[in-house]
Structures are given as structure tokens and as C-alpha cells.
């Protein structure tokens, strides 16, 4: 048996995978009324590698720790980017951070988006609400490696125009000739010139070749279920549809038990799951 000390633990070489290392906030941007993006740089200067779709555990001194997916560019090994919505005391404390403040962080954790499997396919990213944040690294990766993919399509549903994440960047993506971006909101005032309606309507109309399409979906579970439904109705195979799940997590390393979903530990077996492998779990309530 190997000893515990040989096992990869937290980044920075600490033996205990529960122990984080300090990072400093170098930039804070307001995305929406309750969602902020923080740029973080490791105090020890060591680079931080991650794959799109992975998450970190962010600790706020004396307040607690929460799992937050990484929303930055996977090619940038020094600046770690997290987009955080203030929904609890820890996420609210993170959102209240200012430039120069310190957090502690461990990760990255979890199974990433299938960026390699997606090569050669039309790639459809379907995001709902803050679900665009965990997809952003995969989208950035697809743009940076554009020639490896067929069509690149981003479909984004938000609550209202004011609730859209990365609004300027989404506009910039929309301006690229190499990809298609469409957005829709659930409700809008008369000034909004974009679409109003559910995101499944975008899925219904998007132009991709279902036989050669890989889809990555992140958003509320209900939105993901209906998006999967629309994709399969259009002929996308269930084994080329991927979703990112959210469950309570206290450890992210398989020890705490909280994130179990059927036999899956969402922290280690997910958060990204291939749909055909978890479709049976989706059917059971309160699982």
C-alpha cells in the first residue's frame, strides 16, 4: 500500500487535501447585481493549471468554504478567475472582496468538459443563468483552438438583460465570424432588442449537424433537462451530450459524502457527466 504522503493532495504540495493555500484578489468586476468575477493570483507564485469545467474550493477566513467553478482562460496559468454569485454567506463574503484581499483556495477538482472528444464535431454550448461561468473556459478554449472544431455555437438563456454574465464578452463573441452566439431572456422591457423566451427555443433553431454535434450544458437542472430533451429530439446522441451538476460539497475529494447522487460522487465523478450515464438518475426525485 502506498502511504498517504505520496498521494497528490492540495496544490502547493500540502499533504492534506483539505488544506488550501493563499491567493490574492487582483481584480474584481461586477457582472450583475449579485454576481462578481474575481481574478486571483497565488501568493506563493506557483502556476495553477486546470481543465475547463473544473472547480476550486474557496475559503474565506473565518467564514467558510464553497465550491466555485473556474471561469477563466485555461491557457492562463497565473491568473485564476472565478465568477461568484452571492447566494450564501461564503459566496456573499467572496463577492464583497476587494482588490488586495486574500482568500485561500484548493483545487482544481472534478471531471472537465470533453474538449478533446468535442474535436471534429459541431460544438453547442448551452448556458442558463450563471451556468455560463463554468462553460466559459471551454468556450475560450474552443475559440483559441477554433480549427479543431466544426461549428461553434453558444446559446445563452438568462433571466433578464441585466442578469446576463460577461455581457461585453458575449457581444464580442457574437461579432466573431467564426462562431454563432444567440441569447434569450425570460423577461425584458421594450428596450431589449434581443430574444425573449426560453433557451430551448434557441436549441430548436440553432444550425448544427445533429449527427456530428457534441453539446455541453450548464444551468439549473430543469433547464438542462429540457435542453437535453430538445437536443435528443433534434437527433443529437445522448452520449454526446454533457451536463454539469451541482450538489452540496464540503470536501471535493470524496470524503464528506455530501455530493452523492446515486452512486456518483459529484466532486470526483462529475461535476461534468455524460448524459447517457446519468439519465436514470435524473428520473428519480430527491435522489
Amino acid at each position: 500500500m502506498r502511504t498517504a504522503g505520496e498521494r497528490p493532495g492540495a496544490p502547493g504540495g500540502s499533504a492534506d487535501p483539505m488544506v488550501p493555500r493563499p491567493f490574492r484578489v487582483t481584480r474584481r468586476r461586477r457582472e450583475t447585481a449579485d454576481t462578481f468575477t474575481l481574478d486571483l493570483v497565488a501568493e506563493d507564485g506557483k502556476p495553477f493549471a486546470f481543465a475547463p469545467g473544473q472547480f476550486n474550493m474557496l475559503y474565506v477566513h473565518g467564514v467558510g468554504e464553497v465550491p466555485i467553478s473556474i471561469s477563466g482562460d485555461p491557457a492562463d496559468g497565473t491568473r485564476l478567475v472565478h465568477t461568484i454569485r452571492a447566494v450564501g454567506k461564503v459566496s456573499a463574503a467572496l463577492c464583497a472582496m476587494k482588490r488586495g484581499d486574500l482568500v485561500a483556495l484548493r483545487g482544481p477538482y472534478g471531471k472537465p468538459w470533453p474538449t478533446v472528444e468535442a474535436e471534429g464535431h459541431d460544438v453547442v454550448f448551452i448556458a442558463g443563468g450563471v451556468g455560463l461561468a463554468p462553460l466559459r473556459p471551454a468556450i475560450v478554449h474552443a475559440i483559441a483552438n477554433r480549427h479543431r472544431f466544426g461549428k461553434v455555437i453558444v446559446l445563452y438563456g438568462a433571466r433578464s438583460p441585466a442578469d446576463m454574465l460577461f455581457a461585453e464578452e458575449v457581444q464580442r463573441w457574437r461579432g466573431l465570424f467564426s462562431m454563432e452566439v444567440d441569447a434569450t431572456v425570460d423577461r425584458a422591457g421594450p428596450d431589449w432588442l434581443g430574444r425573449v423566451g426560453v433557451v430551448t427555443k434557441l436549441v430548436e433553431r440553432a444550425e448544427f449537424d445533429p449527427a456530428h454535434t457534441l453539446a455541453m450544458i450548464c444551468g439549473p437542472e430543469v433547464m438542462m433537462r429540457f435542453s437535453v430533451e430538445m437536443l435528443t429530439r433534434r437527433g443529437v446522441a445522448e452520449d454526446r451530450i454533457y451536463v454539469s451538476m451541482e450538489r452540496n460539497m464540503k470536501c471535493a475529494v470524496g470524503f464528506c459524502g455530501h455530493c452523492q447522487w446515486g452512486s456518483a460522487f459529484v466532486c470526483r465523478d462529475g461535476p461534468v457527466f455524460r448524459h447517457d450515464r446519468i439519465a436514470h438518475l435524473n428520473a428519480i426525485r430527491e435522489l
Binding site: M1, R2, T3, A4, G5, R7, P8, G9, A15, D16, P17, M18, V253, G254, F255, R268
Partner: peptide, 18 residues
């Protein structure tokens, strides 16, 4: 098996257990 799952091991558990 829980506290050494192949990816992660808990050092406290193993310090007592090993």
C-alpha cells in the same frame, strides 16, 4: 477504501491507521 480513494488520502486517518 474511503479515506484512500486512489486520488486522495486523508493523512490524519492514515497517521492513526497505518
Amino acid at each position: 477504501g474511503v479515506f484512500d480513494n486512489g486520488d486522495f488520502a486523508d493523512p490524519g486517518y492514515w497517521a492513526r491507521r497505518r
